[in-house]
Amino acid sequence: MQLLLIPGITQEHYLWLSAILFSIGVTGVLIRRNAIILLMCIELMLNAVNLLFAAFSTYLSDSNGQIFVFFIMVVAAAEAAVGLAILILTYRNSRTTEVTYWDKLKW
């Protein structure tokens, strides 16, 4: 197991990288309006978490984390497929991908 680790890169590096990726995802979701970008930002957040799982899994020598990674990837793929399908249908109706204009579903 020790062989897999890249020398000079500690667990802390992974944590920071993951945190940065997650924050970028959150920020993107909050400030961007294009639905495609939003979906990508969500993927980014999911992958940040995936990275964290993989890192911990390696450092703690526990394969459970990697199993979670696979689950999350499957869920993310499904989510992307469904999300993009909804997006396309919505686009056909409103001729836009800007989420701001999608405010008909209220009270």
Binding site: V26, V29, L30, R33, V99, T100, W102, D103, K104, L105, K106, W107
Partner: peptide, 17 residues
């Protein structure tokens, strides 16, 4: 309280975060 649900997705995201 129904006015909270204004249909704006960004608002929902913000609230969630």
């Amino acid at each position: 309280i129904r006015f909270i649900q204004n249909g704006n997705i960004e608002f929902y995201f913000l609230a969630m975060v």
